[in-house]
Amino acid sequence: MFSRSWAVYASFLFPVAVRAAAQYDLVKEYAGESFFDEWTFYNNIDNLTHGDVNFLGNIDAFHNKLAYTNDAGNAVMRVDNTTQLKFGQKRNSLRLSTKDQFTVGSVWVADLLHVPYGCSVWSAFWSSAPTWPVGGEIDTFEAVNQDPLGHMGLHTNPGCTHSSNAVQSSTLINSTDCSTEANNNQGCIISNPNPASYGQAFANAGGGVYVTEFAIDGISIWFFNRTTLPSSLQGNVSTIDTSTLGIPVANWPADDCQVNEFFQLQEIVFDITLCGDYAGAASVFYQTCTGVCYNDWVLGDPSHYDTAYFEVSYLRVYGQPGELTVLQPSSTRRSAELSCLSMVGAITLATGSLLAIIWAL
């Protein structure tokens, strides 16, 4: 009885993956004054990647102007760049994730005008299953310190790898094992070869647009700067066809990483931490920066973080026509519970009727 109820619940939360399709329709948009309305702010220290930050809740984030909509109508998410800290203190920053979750068979498009950069900075635009690492992680954009390039990657349970048959434009393959248990959770990482994919060069170029396709036959990520942005992504686009976007920068086909095995519903995340397990690791930090990550940067001149911010024109999510793409965890859970309770009631009633018949006989 319990296993049957759980099967109903699980199938509601994690729908059977549908066949991949190139055509997708707009199902969700985060933009303008309402951009921040449907996000969960982490509201804790960085106990996940051990960075030297306090991730603020939404009230403090808005009050301290770390999250706001600027005069151009773009969403800004930033690190505190005004407070002089004392030893032992952490700098305020943000990590926020969508309240909604998105199924296999979806595409998210992010128009980013600026991404955080600088020594000690570790920023990312990514997605994750709520039960990480079960359910996987997709890193659309990630970069640290003064690295000249941004990166893309996957993190999964053991068994998923980057295929040698991947069709992608980047030849900068940093690692091929996606397992969180391999190589200190490096993941299977592809560097974006575009010199304007991160840092000052990204800002000088006016940013760019990232497209992530989360499909049953594989995961693909495209990056376009302003001069290469296809007409099919310009303006208020309600439908996109990923087959018109050309070869993706990074691609993880399902032949070596079954999407419906290693990935579940995804929440989209923006976060900026400082130092931590990646940016603060000596082998990484000293490649592009000097001094001591915490002492000289986090505790140093707060203006170090004048460039540590995201500026986002929009984030749009597209889904396959006629398929369920957007799920709300609270309503999903409640509906599943009611469904299970109804089943329990029906079986109980049927059992009682059967016993009554047997008793009468």
Rank of each mutant, 00 (worst) to 15 (best):
Q258S: 14
I45K: 09
H304N: 14
P116N: 10
L172W: 15
G322A: 01
A129W: 13
T332F: 04
Q84G: 05
T239M: 12
P130K: 12
C119F: 10
L85S: 15
D46Y: 06
V209I: 12
G352I: 13
P130V: 09
F102H: 03
C188I: 09
A124N: 14
A143L: 07
V344C: 09
G276Q: 05
R333I: 13
Y210P: 01
H114S: 12
P195H: 05
W359L: 07
G280M: 00
G280D: 00
F102P: 00
W359G: 03
L96N: 04
T98R: 02
V292P: 00
L355H: 03
K86E: 15
A308I: 13
A196K: 07
G300Y: 00
D46S: 06
S335F: 10
I216N: 05
A20P: 04
R334E: 13
G88K: 14
W122T: 04
R226W: 02
G153T: 04
R95Y: 06
T140Q: 01
Y314E: 02
A31H: 12
D80E: 12
Q287T: 15
E38Q: 10
L96M: 15
D271P: 10
F141P: 04
T131W: 10
I247Y: 06
V115R: 05
A129P: 11
D271A: 14
S11V: 05
Y305I: 06
P116A: 09
V115A: 14
A336S: 04
D37H: 08
R91I: 10
F270Q: 00
E213A: 15
E267W: 02
N44D: 15
Q320E: 11
E267P: 01
N74F: 15
A67C: 00
M152S: 15
N70R: 06
F62C: 05
E323T: 09
L349H: 04
L361H: 09
V167G: 03
F55L: 13
W6I: 02
Q101L: 07
A279M: 07
A254D: 12
G291T: 03
L327D: 08
E181M: 03
V107L: 01
N236C: 05
S93G: 03
S191F: 08
F55H: 11
I347L: 10
Q168Y: 07
T239Q: 14
T69A: 06
N174F: 08
T49S: 14
S127C: 08
K86Y: 15
F202Q: 05
E181R: 05
G118D: 01
V298G: 01
N92E: 09
